[in-house]
């Protein structure tokens, strides 16, 4: 699904020239490693920008996002820099305040998903046997069932899906890919020397999993988590767009929903649908860059060949 695409896209784009002169700040080691990678840094900067917008939303664009503040479909101007909607609402206010809910839903659900992935994937890989077979079967079934139609059907049964419902539905249907990735990594680690050593020394299973297995797949968990966040942000926007969100909520998806429903296209009001789409893409781009960065850092082979050309 979405995550899969992100992970497969690894070697794309320009070669990474890791800056050798690292900042001499008292940063923790992992952070310095990440900032040494250009892609990851670009991604983090964009993400930071959105985080700031989300946090300071009421300061940046005060006002009621659904209130009529102008004439319908006003073009972008100094007063309304992204123009207004059919209802005369300020699009800029909607986008700024929508950042908050989009990020909360994205990162919140992504986090729930990654926990499900860890629980299911690591259990499956570590316990093995019948448990593994059953869990793998369920994982594979969820992988092959078309995700979006399933989500739409589930959401369709809910009377008025609020953010919590959307998060729940997305979590329950989108864990399969990450679970599979983590399972195979667990399998590799389970057969490694240090886990075997811990086992023979009689460490309890939960300790092995917590202190031997998980710390050794941090980067994989991190990139699966980011992949899940990208997927959720896209899918949440899609659900709102098709009318399965709360139409009165303020998210990028609902702004798009109203653009579609109010014939924004027919009337030429491009400013109602361009900003939310670009925001979604920018967040997706930023997160993908971070994932590329993680990939390059943990998998240096990817960049070796591009290093020293004549």
């Amino acid at each position: 699904m979405g995550q899969e695409k992100q992970i497969r896209m690894t070697t794309a784009l320009e070669p990474a020239k890791t800056t050798r002169s690292e900042p001499r700040l008292a940063l923790p080691g992992w952070m310095r490693t990440i900032l040494g990678n250009r892609k990851a840094t670009i991604g983090l900067l964009i993400l930071l920008m959105f985080l700031l917008v989300a946090i300071f939303a009421p300061v940046i664009a005060p006002g009621e996002p659904n209130k009529m503040v102008g004439r319908p479909h006003e073009r972008p101007s100094a007063e309304h820099i992204f123009g207004t909607s059919r209802q005369g609402q300020d699009i800029f206010t909607q986008i700024v305040q929508g950042t908050r809910s989009s990020l909360i839903v994205g990162f919140g659900t992504g986090t729930i998903i990654i926990f499900l992935c860890i629980i299911i994937g690591v259990t499956s890989g570590f316990v093995g046997g019948v448990v593994d077979e059953v869990l793998s079967l369920i994982t594979n079934v969820f992988l092959i069932l078309p995700g979006l139609p399933l989500i739409i059907v589930v959401a369709g049964w809910v009377e008025q899906p609020g953010p919590a419902t959307v998060m729940l539905v997305l979590s329950l249907t989108s864990w399969a890919f990450g679970a599979r990735v983590l399972r195979s990594q667990t399998l590799v680690l389970r057969n490694s020397d240090f886990v075997a050593a811990a086992r023979t020394s009689g460490e309890p299973t939960w300790r092995i999993v917590l202190f031997e297995i998980l710390p050794n797949m941090t980067s994989l968990v991190a990139s699966s988590w980011i992949g899940a966040v990208i997927f959720v942000i896209l899918t949440e926007a899609t659900l709102s767009f098709v009318g399965l969100g709360n139409p009165n909520a303020v998210t990028w998806g609902t702004t798009l929903y109203w653009a579609q429903n109010n014939q924004a296209l027919l009337t030429g009001a491009w400013w109602t649908f361009v900003p939310p789409g670009v925001c979604i893409a920018l967040i997706g781009f930023a997160l993908t860059m971070i994932n590329y960065g993680i990939d390059e850092i943990t998998n240096p082979r990817l960049t070796v060949e591009k290093s020293e050309k004549e």
Partner: peptide
Amino acid sequence: GAFPFFWIAMV
């Protein structure tokens, strides 16, 4: 690839 599919459709 970063844009939602339906948004590309709208454009």
